[in-house]
Amino acid sequence: MAYKIMVADDDPEIRDVIRIYLQNEGYQTVEAEDGKQVLHLLDNHKVDLIILDVMMPVLDGINACFKIRERTNIPIIMLSAKSEDIDKITGLTSGADDYLSKPFNPLELIARVKAQLRRQSLASSASNLSMDNTVIEIDDLKIDRNRHLVSVRGKEISLTPIEFSILELMASHRGFVFNIEKLYQSVWKEDKFLSDNTVMVHIRNIREKIEDNARSPRYIKTVWGVGYKVD
């Protein structure tokens, strides 16, 4: 069964280019012109991934992403003509799993689509396995690997798929220090490491959600000059 990808961009030429490359890879596509249409289409289509432009009329990509995350944790790759770090941080904070600046190489976009779908598939396969250590407990933090649920003091925490994968990886290797490159390769399942702050933004987002004080974290510790670990 072919994956179905939603392409949301108000520029029909960009949608055409992305659609052609996706269909050449055997993916099905559904298209939207703005964020409001994205939400409407999600009511009628089961999609496996969303490519979401930031600058769209009616409802922009950032606010659409927030609303999508209220419904589902399917992977979201955000596109934007803006390339400043603050724009990338805003995109990832809204719940996107990856971020690509325009103009972009369509082959790089396809590579990122494949990486997200591969990671999602591996996560689904793992959740269907019967494992002895399906639940990781660290003080008040509980990670249910089978159900993909995280809670702190019994309160369920909503994490994106990428955020869950990062936290699960570090929590299952307590005390091990992961540098940014290792985290990227382990979670995104890509050998090529992109030199940007994507991983750091996701770490910050996780801390904001699970820590009482993100500036003085209890769970995800920074090892200065090296990387991150969960104690």
Rank of each mutant, 00 (worst) to 15 (best):
A115Q: 02
V54K: 05
T198I: 10
S83Y: 14
Y27I: 04
E168W: 00
S151A: 14
K67E: 11
S195N: 14
E190D: 11
N24H: 14
D132W: 09
A123S: 13
S130Q: 14
T90E: 15
A8L: 03
N205C: 14
V199Y: 03
K46A: 00
T29L: 02
R145T: 08
H45L: 00
P75L: 07
S130V: 13
H45C: 08
D34V: 11
I143A: 06
R218G: 02
K229Q: 12
K46C: 03
L194M: 07
K36M: 06
M200L: 13
D48H: 13
L79M: 09
L100M: 10
A115L: 05
V223P: 03
Q185L: 10
R204D: 12
R147F: 01
S121C: 13
A32V: 00
S124A: 13
G26Q: 04
Y27T: 02
N105Y: 09
K229F: 12
R145K: 08
F178I: 10
M55R: 11
Q185C: 09
I138S: 08
L194S: 08
D132Y: 09
L194E: 10
R215C: 12
L109T: 07
L129G: 09
V187T: 08
D53I: 05
I166K: 07
P103N: 02
D11G: 02
Y219T: 08
S216Y: 06
E208A: 08
M78F: 01
M131V: 13
E70K: 00
R153S: 15
Q37I: 03
L129P: 06
I89C: 12
G154P: 13
R112Q: 05
I18R: 04
M170W: 00
L41T: 00
R69E: 05
A81C: 07
Q28V: 02
D231Q: 15
F104I: 11
I18H: 09
L22P: 04
S186C: 07
E84V: 12
V17I: 13
Y21P: 00
R147E: 10
N44M: 12
V17F: 01
I50G: 05
V54A: 07
D48W: 00
A126M: 06
R15M: 14
Y228P: 02
E168D: 05
Y219V: 08
T222S: 11
Y184V: 05
R19F: 06
K114M: 00
I138E: 13
R207M: 14
E13C: 12
K4E: 02
T160N: 03
A2D: 09
E163F: 07
D87G: 07
S186W: 01
K102Q: 09
N105A: 11
M170A: 01
A126P: 03
E208R: 10
T160R: 03
T90P: 08
L109F: 07
Q120C: 06
D10P: 01
D87T: 09
V150F: 10
I180S: 09
D9R: 14
Y228W: 09
K88R: 14
D97N: 15
D212T: 06
L52I: 03
H45Q: 10
Q23G: 12
D212E: 06
N213C: 10
P103H: 00
S125P: 08
V201C: 14
S83N: 15
